[in-house]
Design a protein around this nucleic acid. Structure first.
Length: 501
DNA sequence: TGTGCCGGGTG
DNA sequence: CACCCGGCACA
């Protein structure tokens, strides 16, 4: 016996080392580096983004543009105005990508015009019209940008958080946005009124591409509906115009407080019936420990994180996306609580989009972080003061704030690893490095997986032993001297089967 | 420190 | 599978 024990001990020791039982052993876990299989995830992320944009449009329709820029930005939320993101913001929804290639080339207004104009002077007229239209919209776009700014100031002053100054990146994004709008205007089949209406056969092909004449087409407006979405058949939103404008909007302008309808009006001089104004203000909160700084723009918060927390003073333009992990987007309801609650309902853009996340929780739990978190009301949202916070974490690794909240996922400041901690000190987490969202080198799937773990109590997550039974046990009842009267389980030092709790 | 019992070894 | 025990967590 003694000899056996002596022989066993070493093996026991090594065994324990390898086992992943109690948290104690886990403290030795080494986190996976964030830099992971970037390529694979990027592709996946692209899909997701496209889907998000798609859904966002649906939601936009539903809210009647009340969300304005606020609801327009979610798909791009959390993506700083980095050069890499510019590319992303130019990414069309999946169906658009298809259509843009095929349909636009066939159905652009000028080409439509060509279809129906044979004389040379008509061609010239078309060219002139086109140019004048471009100039016109250039003016109007400038005007709308000014108004956006104005509106932003008003909204920002309504809440106590001072708006971050528009960074140069944002301005660049404005330019990009304007350019995109102009481009789309010059190529869009119809913005105000089509020079010539397509004939029936053309209509057919438009339908195929998802463009269907709306019920208001008699007034010269066409609506554009995704084939799968027939819920809003008459929403006037020409391809690559209003929606595109929204889609191209930079996340650094999360909420300008401008109605979508207003934007459309500005851009298209269209008397769109006003709908309820969206009262959600999207802010970006720094999740760095003991910081909690809130800025109104992603760029601002990224800059803040880069400079203040990451100490990257000289590389303000450079971003590896790491700072994305350290802030979260919060939706600040400036309306009544009731409205806030309704906004928390599953209609939320990121929540009510099964198509966007076809492989949500059950199938791919690691991709559902943000959503799960929102559903579960994170500590941050719970600790929100008077205003209602709706926390969105689209950023990889970012589930809950790294502030002193037990049970939060956090990322170590060195960025080389992330960790889950149920207490303040982080417990490193081993995970499979998965999808870097966007263009960042790190993975988003990781975060979501981590969050899945967080969604359940730590005991369950770590599979700790069940609560000790408090009833009588054989040992107590019979005593050591009557060990032969014990149940076998007790004799074997297993859970008592005679006095089961 | 005593107790309950998990995890794993041995035969 | 029965049996045993190291060792951990908890009271």
């Amino acid at each position: 016996m003694q000899a056996r024990r002596l022989a066993k001990r070493p093996s026991v020791g090594s065994r324990r080392l390898g086992s992943c039982g109690p948290p104690k052993a886990e403290s030795g876990w080494r986190p996976a580096r964030r830099e992971g299989s970037a390529a694979a995830v990027e592709e996946e992320d692209e899909d997701e983004d496209a889907a998000v944009v798609e859904v966002d449009e649906e939601e936009e329709d539903e809210e009647g543009g009340g969300g304005g820029a606020a609801s327009g930005s979610p798909p791009l939320r959390g993506k700083g105005p980095k050069a890499a993101n510019i590319k992303r913001e130019m990414t069309f929804p999946a169906f658009q990508q298809e259509d843009v290639k095929s349909d636009i080339s066939q159905k652009l207004p000028d080409q439509q015009f060509l279809l129906f104009t044979t004389k040379e002077e008509d061609l010239k007229t078309a060219e002139t019209k086109k140019l004048s239209r471009v100039h016109e919209y250039e003016k109007e776009n400038t005007r709308s940008v000014c108004l956006l700014e104005q509106k932003r100031k008003v909204v920002s002053s309504n809440i106590d958080v001072p708006p971050a100054r528009k960074s140069s990146e944002e301005l660049d994004m404005d330019k990009v946005t304007a350019a995109m709008v102009l481009t789309s205007l010059s190529t869009s089949p119809l913005v105000r009124s089509p020079p010539v209406r397509p004939n029936e056969s053309l209509n057919g092909s438009w339908k195929e591409g998802g463009f269907v004449p709306s019920s208001t087409s008699s007034s010269g407006y066409w609506s554009w509906n995704a084939p799968s979405d027939q819920s809003n058949p008459s929403t006037p939103s020409p391809p690559l115009s209003a929606d595109s404008f929204k889609a191209f909007r930079t996340p650094s302008q999360p909420d300008d407080g401008i109605d979508e309808a207003e934007t459309s009006n500005l851009l298209f001089d269209e008397p769109i019936p006003r709908k309820r104004k969206n009262s959600m203000k999207v802010m970006f909160k720094c999740l760095w420990k003991n910081c909690g700084k809130v800025l109104s723009t992603a760029a601002g918060i990224q800059k803040h994180i880069r400079t203040v927390h990451l100490g990257r003073v000289g590389e303000s333009d450079y971003s590896d996306g790491e700072e994305d992990f350290y802030y979260t987007e919060i939706r600040l309801n400036t309306d009544s609580v009731a409205d806030g609650l309704s906004s928390l309902s599953p209609v939320s853009p990121s929540l009510a989009s099964p198509p966007s996340f076809p492989t949500q929780d059950a199938i791919r739990p690691e991709t559902s972080c943000a959503k799960t978190e929102t559903k579960l009301m994170t500590p941050l949202s719970r600790s929100a003061p008077t205003n209602l916070y709706l926390v969105h974490t689209d950023h990889a690794y970012q589930a809950t704030p790294p502030v002193n909240i037990p049970g939060s996922t956090k990322f170590t400041p060195n960025g080389s690893s992330f960790s889950i901690s149920w207490q303040s000190p982080p417990v490193t987490f081993t995970g499979i490095p998965v999808s870097p969202t966007h263009n960042r080198p790190a993975g988003s799937g990781e975060q979501k997986q981590a969050h899945t773990v967080l969604s359940s109590p730590p005991r369950v997550a770590f599979g700790l032993r069940k609560p000790r039974g408090e009833g009588k046990k054989c040992r107590k009842v019979y005593g050591m001297e009557n060990r032969d009267m014990w149940c076998t389980a007790c004799r074997w030092k297993k859970a008592c089967q005679r006095f089961i709790d």
